[in-house]
Design a protein around this nucleic acid. Sequence first.
DNA 1: GAGGAATTCTATAGATCTATTGAATTTTTA
DNA 2: TAAAAATTCAATAGATCTATAGAATTCCTC
Lengths: 214, 214
Amino acid sequence: MNEFGNMPQAATDKYQQQRAQAIRCAAAVFAEKGFHGASTKDIAERIGIKQGSLYYYFKSKEEALGEVCLYGIEDYVHRMDGIAASEQPFAAKLLATVTSHLSSYRERNEALKVHNDERLYLPEEKRQKLHKLGSRYRKSLQGIFQEGVASGDLRDSIDCHFAAQAVIGICNAWGDIIVREPDLDIFDVTQKCVDLLLNGFCERRKNTRQDRRA
Amino acid sequence: MNEFGNMPQAATDKYQQQRAQAIRCAAAVFAEKGFHGASTKDIAERIGIKQGSLYYYFKSKEEALGEVCLYGIEDYVHRMDGIAASEQPFAAKLLATVTSHLSSYRERNEALKVHNDERLYLPEEKRQKLHKLGSRYRKSLQGIFQEGVASGDLRDSIDCHFAAQAVIGICNAWGDIIVREPDLDIFDVTQKCVDLLLNGFCERRKNTRQDRRA
DNA sequence: GAGGAATTCTATAGATCTATTGAATTTTTA
DNA sequence: TAAAAATTCAATAGATCTATAGAATTCCTC
């Protein structure tokens, strides 16, 4: 105990590292059992400490959930910012986006799953914060499509909102599969995904502009 | 009480109807709070009975979850069987599939959500049964794509497994949105979805075969 | 290695929650 | 309408689970 009781020493490096480890453990447990199905005992055991000690790192179970959710998406939201701001042609941005999204599933699949499935159990304020991050992601993606239309790479009849959500849907569906099947090649899936988005599945007489570029 | 204790009278029509109503209430509560987050008291209150009375309709909370999950997908799996077996051209089957999938979200969104998010908390046997239904759905959809390739409507370079999962991903993403936004027109979303799948988003010089048919 | 700071532990209060049991009530049947 | 069947209820055992408090232990620094 220290002069303030058992308050954590948020300033120290060691504390922050151990907390980060605790967040990853919590992610694994929440991903497996869900927020309400996972007990603080489960999480503590995964970390290798006793149940009560968990509260040295988190004020509550809910706070732990918040940290896991944030950890799950902060990374790929930031990568998305970079892609959207970069000076690449449309097709390259789309490819980078899909690769990034699918890679997130490999790297942080547990935390990402928790974010997708459990964030609604967070208190309003925290949920709002995550919602804003998600919106930023969707808007960036939608912006990429709008640029594609403006540059003439895409048909001007397409609905960019629909397109962005469709991409997210495909990436989430295949993200789950990628997690289940570790031998799957992300780049291979990415290629198929981009091919669908650009060209569709329909038989074609003539090569498209994209095909000729490749 | 009857001669067998308080056993439910599974044979009677009234019992089956009330049980069906209980399943729909359970679906709503599970959808809102998740399986572990929802208590039997919550479910009973939604039905309008006391907590203990719930066990007249379900052997356990887990059984209730199983019934909700089944209710969530049985309908659209069966509709899918019908579509796959029908004698329509490829594009019509694809359109029917997407419409059916999106409509399921409107009609049974709570149970469907529960199936998607909570079925992993079911005991092995029940989960297997649902998994088989899901597989049947995926295989039917994949089969439709294979027919499309065989008939020349689709490029023979496409990966039908990828295609089927992509369709499911898009439908799930847009299904969620459709539930949140009641004013959205399902047919409009369906059209955009099929257009993406057939033609992609890319600018095109020549009309495709599908376009000319329309 | 002594003293203070940081970390973990034990123990527990108090609030759930599931499932069971037998009684009470309502509905149906004769 | 009275008996029988079906449905609901109240009460509770027993097993959780979260969060707290203060003691015990480990770690670091001088």
